[in-house]
Design a protein around this nucleic acid. Structure first.
Length: 283
DNA sequence: AACGCCCGGTACGCAGAGTT
DNA sequence: AACTCTGCGTACCGGGCGTT
């Protein structure tokens, strides 16, 4: 019998986040080599405290998020729910790779939970944030275009270290996001490309938008994340369109969808695309 | 054999929808 | 607002079947 995803009480706080000092040893970097750790860590902690204050009670009316390893003898593949905020829509860049829209915030959460199961950071896009977007997510030029806000290239070693810290050797990693095929994925691939790096081949991506399209007709009308939260009766309060908040909402949506589709690890792997899918969005 | 009808598969274009 | 995937409707084609 196929193993079903099961969700159990999170062992640790939903908001436990992974500070830079934890990841730097994984990344094999000295703090000075990466960025000013104090300024970064202070910002990271500020971000956590911000979420602790504003998001701690933002999701209510549902059971606590649950997830269990499928077998103690066979470590499960980590499911990393992530979301990004950007300076605009994805545009394929031709010629000058410094042009185009950039990521301004990145948040990820390992659905398995545990210590240091989340990672989030603001990112310096090295370009202005269009004014109309500040009304969407409250991320403006003054907030992110500062020397103490790390660029994606600064954070990349930490991100890779975070993934390594969650990954079972020899097992792939499954990233889950809403519209990852057309938005988050291409952006991520483009940022890797800017860093002259390649996304690891054992990174797989599952698009919850594609899953939502397969929902029964009565649940199919609107498929954006907000509508899915309403349909699954997931109450999300506070400011929307912030990366970690959307991650938390998507965690719960994904949980519900997993039950709806009776998703198995095998089924999820079949739904997944690998990093090479996004190469068509690069030069 | 000729004709008409139905069904399934394929191809195409358009509108809607998704992300910030 | 930019971009493009997806679903839907439509048209077309070929095969099967029944009727004349």
């Amino acid at each position: 019998m196929a193993l079903l995803f099961r969700f159990s009480q999170l062992r640790n706080s939903m908001l436990s986040s992974c500070p830079a000092r934890v990841l730097i040893p994984y990344a094999g970097l000295s703090p000075g080599k990466l960025l000013d750790p104090k300024s970064y860590e202070r910002r990271a902690q500020e971000t956590v405290s911000l979420h602790s204050a504003s998001l701690g009670s933002c999701i209510s009316g549902i059971q606590p998020l649950k997830f269990q390893q499928t077998s103690e003898h066979e470590p499960s593949v980590p499911l990393l729910i992530f979301d990004i905020e950007t300076t605009g829509y994805f545009q394929k860049i031709t010629g000058n790779v410094q042009k185009g829209n950039r990521i301004t915030e990145f948040a990820v959460r390992d659905l398995c939970g545990g210590k240091n199961s989340t990672f989030e950071t603001l990112l310096n896009p090295e370009r202005d944030v269009p004014g109309h977007l500040a009304t969407v997510n409250n991320i403006n030029t003054d907030l992110v275009c500062r020397p103490d806000v790390p660029r994606f290239s600064d954070v990349l070693p930490l991100l890779l270290a975070f993934v390594r810290s969650r990954q079972t050797p020899g097992k792939p990693v499954i990233w889950v996001a809403h519209n990852v095929k057309r938005f988050d994925g291409p952006f991520l691939a483009q940022e890797f490309d800017r860093c002259s790096a390649q996304m690891p081949e054992d990174w797989l991506f599952v698009d919850t938008l594609c899953l939502a399209r397969k929902l029964p007709a009565d649940k199919k009308h609107l498929l954006n994340l907000e509508s899915l939260c309403k349909r699954y009766e997931i109450s999300v309060e506070g400011p929307s369109h912030r990366a970690m908040q959307d991650v938390m909402a998507l965690c719960h949506v994904f949980q519900k969808m997993s039950f709806d589709f009776q998703l198995t690890h095998e089924g999820l792997m079949n739904e997944a695309i690998n990093a090479s899918y996004f190469s068509k969005y690069l030069n």
